[in-house]
């Protein structure tokens, strides 16, 4: 699989700063998602999830993926939704492309709002 490093050094610093400033995210290191994979996943969320949920995650054909819409939902439910999809909707199962750890990490970022709008809205380089 080709790797896409899609964030500038500065952007990375910002992301890392945000990640390290939020204690909730401490368990992301436990889940073993390294920095390189985190960047791939952020790119994935923005462009591939974004094709239905909007690049800024404010919704499209699929619902918004913002903390206020996802915050109250059980994490396990959201992880399962990503991996298995949801029947009778357009949400497909992403498990061929994402591991359980990947999905958990994405859910954490989405629920915490750790992917800043500025970063989603601005060009990823």
């Amino acid at each position: 699989m080709r790797v896409n490093i899609s964030f500038s050094g500065r952007m990375l610093t910002i992301v890392i700063a945000i990640l390290s400033s939020q204690p909730v995210l401490a368990d992301t290191t436990v889940s073993g998602i390294d920095e390189k994979r985190q960047n791939e996943l952020l790119y994935f969320v923005k462009h591939d999830c974004g094709s239905c949920h909007g690049m800024t995650l404010k919704g499209g054909l699929g619902p918004a993926l913002l903390p206020k819409t996802l915050g109250g939902k059980p994490k396990a439910f959201l992880v399962t939704t990503i991996l298995e999809g949801r029947k009778n909707t357009a949400m497909p199962p992403w498990k061929p492309m994402l591991s359980h750890d990947d999905a958990s990490w994405i859910v954490e970022q989405l629920q915490n709002g750790s992917i800043p709008q500025t970063q989603l809205a601005k060009g990823a380089q």
Partner: peptide
């Protein structure tokens, strides 16, 4: 046929 997942509309 088995329906495959649709990852983009």
């Amino acid at each position: 046929e088995k329906k495959l997942p649709v990852y983009k509309m």
